[in-house]
Amino acid sequence: MNKTDDLYYIEAVRKGNVAAFSALVDRYQNLVYSLALKLLKKTEEAEEMAQDTFVKAYQKLDTYEGKSKFSTWLYSITYNACISELRKRRIQFSSLEDQRISDQDEMRMHDYFSETKKEDQEKYLSIALGKLPEDDQVLVTLYYYENQSMDEISVITGLTVSNIKVKIHRARKRMYSLLHEMLHEEIYTLL
């Protein structure tokens, strides 16, 4: 077993080496925190939730069977804890309408956007992502940033694969639409 494998550290923790868990915390803290922040919005709450997630993962480590990736298992703990917290506050997510943007428009938009400055790209992308409904932000992050498969995202969120496909498709088109609007506004102000 490779020293960099999650299973190597999981086995070490199971054998009583508690300190080995810190390697898993180091590896996944950013994504766990980021998912919590996308759903809960407040940094303090997201940090508290991320800490709780890791403690819960440690407590439940014996129940992790290794059927899915450790990251998938960990993100499902994070997602479910955040969702139950939001349910307590009776917060519901809005859903996106279908955007009337063709695939060709998306490709043209991508080429046009790629020509803008790197720092502007990151700024506009962050704004556009932040304007999506919270659960769509999570789906986009898991699918495009974390490269989790549709099936894995289904395990994490409890949504059906077909529902995830539709949501990701709409979220992508909505983001391109938002980027288009932002770039148009900038050109307009420059003129």
Binding site: V18, A19, F21, S22, V25, D26, Q29, N30, L31, Y33, S34, L37, A46, E47, A50, Q51, F54, V55, Y58, D103, E106, M107, H110, F113, S114, K118, Q121, E122, L125, S126, L129, V140, T141, Y144, Y145, N147, R172, M175, Y176
Partner: peptide, 29 residues
């Protein structure tokens, strides 16, 4: 289209928790 969009999304730097996060978690553990 998905691959192009993936390239864009990976431009965004991911949020990170405060310094000493690992220590705080390990204290609790």
């Amino acid at each position: 289209i998905d691959k192009q969009f993936e390239q864009l999304i990976k431009e965004i730097s991911i949020d990170s928790p405060s310094k000493g996060f690992t220590l705080k978690v390990m204290d609790r553990i």
